[in-house]
Amino acid sequence: MSDKEAEFREFVGAQMESLRGLAYLTCGDWQVAEDAVLAALARLYVKWNRVDKPDAYARTAVVRAAIDETRRPWWRREQSHSHAALPEEVAPDPIPHADDRVQLRQALSRLPVKQRAVLVLRFLEGQSVQQTAAALRCPEGTVKVYTARGLDALRRVLGVRLGIDEQTGGRHEATV
């Protein structure tokens, strides 16, 4: 095994689980998320010698791959059926600590995939508007609109106050 391959293996071992979480929040399906991670990391393997910041590359590639997975027509059909089954307002969960998490996942699942991706990149990954725009290959204006819309939608679905403080200490924060 070459040093490069050992490096790659170490990277994958350390990052695979968190990358899957990133993909999951983007596409809303654990299995699809793992497929997206596998595809993105296989691409990274090919470019391993040429990528300066593998962590940033992997996280962007995973989000893009997760978005691509959701564009497949069969997946979209499945999503539209599952969305139809969701209640307009999310019922309180009997387990209080799981409640926030479940509600957030359901709220995210109601957003278009690119809006989800924007929220995930900005508030989980702490990326700026400019970085998010570059990662998703869309104009900065679109990122701003999606951020505002996504937060607004979360507010509506979660039924709680959701504030945003732009770039606090290098990280973009919103509170619920």
Partner: peptide
């Protein structure tokens, strides 16, 4: 709670075990 904390929890908690291993990734690569 911060939205970032909630997102981190949502991305981690209740996750099923990974189906693929590091070897699978290397083979795919």
């Amino acid at each position: 709670k911060q939205l970032s904390d909630l997102l981190e929890e949502a991305a981690r908690q209740d996750a099923p075990p990974l189906r693929h291993t590091v070897d699978d990734v290397v083979i795919a690569g």
